[in-house]
Every structure is written in C-alpha cells, then in structure tokens.
Design a protein around this nucleic acid. Structure first.
Lengths: 181, 181
DNA sequence: CCACCCATGTAAAGAGTTACATGATTAC
DNA sequence: GTAATCATGTAACTCTTTACATGGGTGG
C-alpha cells in the first residue's frame, strides 16, 4: 500500500496533522488518491499503533486543536525501505479507450465527437495542472537535486497530456479522411 | 462502472460465456481489470437480472456445459448509451513517481539504480505487449475503421512506454552529470 | 445568526483482488 | 491416476470513495 509511503514521505518533509496531509494529497497532482478523510485518519492511527509515527496534540493560538504527527526512527527506516522497493510500472485506467474500442456500432461522426470532447477534457486539465505546478514552483527549502526531480516529474505530466492530445487529433484526422462523408 | 461497458462491448462482438470473457479481459492489454472470476460472474448475474443480457446453457460436443450470454435489445441500447457517455481523462497511478518524489533522503547512486530498474521494467513490459499485439493483429471480421482504431490504440500504448523510458533515461543523465561523484 | 473553514473522526457502500470450493473433461 | 484445463461460482479481504457526525472558530 503506497498510500502509506506517501504519508511517510510527506511527514519526512515536516510534521503535520491529518488535515494538513489531506490538503497536501489534493495539492500534489501525481498522488493518485483523493485524499479522503477516512483513509488518511485511519492510516495515521494504524501507523501510530505500529510505532512508525508519534502524535502530539497542540493548541494553536487561534483555531481548534491539532494532532501533529511526526516520523519516528522506526518510521524513517520504514520510509527508506519503501523508497528502495522495486519500482512498479504505472497502471493506467483509461475508460475512454474502451469506449473507442467498442465504438464500431457508432457512426463516424459520433466517434469524432467523442474524440473532440476528449481533447477538450485534456485542454481543461492542462490549464488546471499548469496553474497547480506554477503555484508549487517556488516551494522553499528544496535542494537542487530535489528541485530537478520535481520539475522533471511535473514536466512529464504535462508532456503526457500533450502526447495524448496529439494522438487523439491525429486519429481524428485519419478517421475524417477515410471514413467521413 | 465501466467494467459493465467492457462486458457489454465484448458481448456485442459475439455471445460468450463468463469463462470466455475472463480470457478476453486478460488478453486485451488496455482493459484495466484483472478479469477475476468474482467480478465477471457477479456482473453477468446482475446484468441478467436487469435484462441487459440473456443466458443459455449449452452442452458442447466435448467439455463441460457453458452458460453462453447474449446481448438483449435492452443491453444493446445500454451499450450504445454508455459508448456515447462523456469521455473521462485517463487515471494514472504511478507509485514509482511517489518513490522518486520523496527520494531526497537517498544517495544519488540509489536513485539512479531505481531509475535503471524502472527502465528494465519498461523494456520487459514492451516485449510482452509487442507479442500480445502481434497475436491480436490478425483478428478476423473487423471493419477497416475498427482495425484503424485498434491499431492506433495499441500503437499509442507502446509509444507511451517509449516516452516514459526516454524520460527516465534523460533524468538519469541529468542526475549523473550534476550530482554523481 | 448563518455560512464557511478548521479539524478529527466514523459509517456505509462500491470497486477490485486473491483464494477457495466444486465438478467435469482431457492429456500424459 | 494424476495433473492440467474447462467452467461456474462464493468467501474473505483490501482499497477507495461519498457521506455523515461533531464541535470550535471566523467573517459578514
């Protein structure tokens, strides 16, 4: 379960509460979970029972009390071990491809419309991502090496979207040329 | 749930049993489910109770009896509606990116090793995929349009893997140049 | 006072996987 | 006869999401 890895990783940057983690989850695009309460709070309780994190309730000057989690020695060791685990290939779930794959019973103009809609989705997503990445750019306290890695990761996400859009567009062209009208 | 769409789609090609569907699931790479018994048989029973499929037990000349499912009129209509549903963007779950993202606590040589391993994984996957796609190439009874779409989909899968590998390799180069030794 | 954000948690349900149970047929 | 494959299904579990419950603080 790499949700655990993500939590340990975020805590290795700085101690924070479940609520903070939740925000981090939804702020980092390539974290593939919604960052819902249930999973985060329950995982934190489990990690605490396993001794990978410590928690301390603090009362900020204003606002409600927070339960701040920190990595323990054991948690740090576990994080390192998980970071060194064998890399897995990405899993892609693209239900649009399935729509396309069985679209033989649709007229060509409808398939073209689907591809068009798909491109629109990609464009909208790119705008959101670009904005998110721009905000994260000036993240303070990162080493040069870490900055390089994060930049390359975010670049790659945008590049993937571009490639997907180009692919859809070229498929549209081919369909139009050969099967339209 | 687009597992339903996949089953309806496969049945629109030809009537088949749960066992056949299971094989189809694992044979088509971009179907993102394992094709486990539980999901397929239970979905078939549900689709039957909803009147989207009919089933008929047949006794082949040799081998055990099969429960062959066919699309009903209602099932065909539902398939068409689902094919026309708004396209969704692909969801990518790449836990390796998360490993990389929090790898700041590792030495550069270890990060390079991870990237190397990732590339190896990609290469292995590409060999498998190429073989799978080669086998599927001569699928009979496909229209020219359908063949085009399937070819483009499979091409795109291989292209994505290539891009991912190129990305990892160029990141390795950058890390080596700037941070190694 | 009401709506919204901060903050921690739980309930219920859906989605997906692995493993199990059963039985017939085929291949060695 | 025994191992593998064909074939249908169930059990148990994990993972993930949406929604709910609770309570304090802040801004209009």
């Amino acid at each position: 379960m790499s949700l655990e890895l993500t939590i340990l990783g975020l805590l290795s940057w700085n101690p924070q509460s479940g609520y903070d983690l939740k925000k981090s989850f939804s702020a980092v695009e390539f974290i593939p979970w919604s960052g819902n309460n249930n999973q985060i709070y329950r995982t934190l309780l489990r990690l605490h029972s396993e001794g990978l994190v410590d928690s301390q309730i603090t009362q900020p000057e204003s606002g409600p009390a927070k339960k701040i989690y920190t990595l323990t020695e054991k948690g740090y060791t576990s994080l390192k071990a998980q970071l060194l685990g064998a890399p897995e290939l990405e899993q892609v779930k693209n239900t649009f491809l399935i729509q396309l794959a069985f679209a033989e019973i649709l007229e060509t103009r409808l398939i073209l419309q689907l591809l068009e809609d798909y491109c629109t989705q990609i464009t909208e997503r790119k705008v959101l991502l670009t904005e998110e990445f721009r905000r994260a750019e000036g993240y303070p306290g990162r080493s040069e090496r870490e900055t390089l890695i994060w930049t390359r990761i975010t670049d790659r996400r945008l590049e993937s979207l571009d490639n997907e859009k180009k692919w859809a567009e070229s498929l549209m062209e081919e369909l139009k040329e050969t099967f339209h009208e």
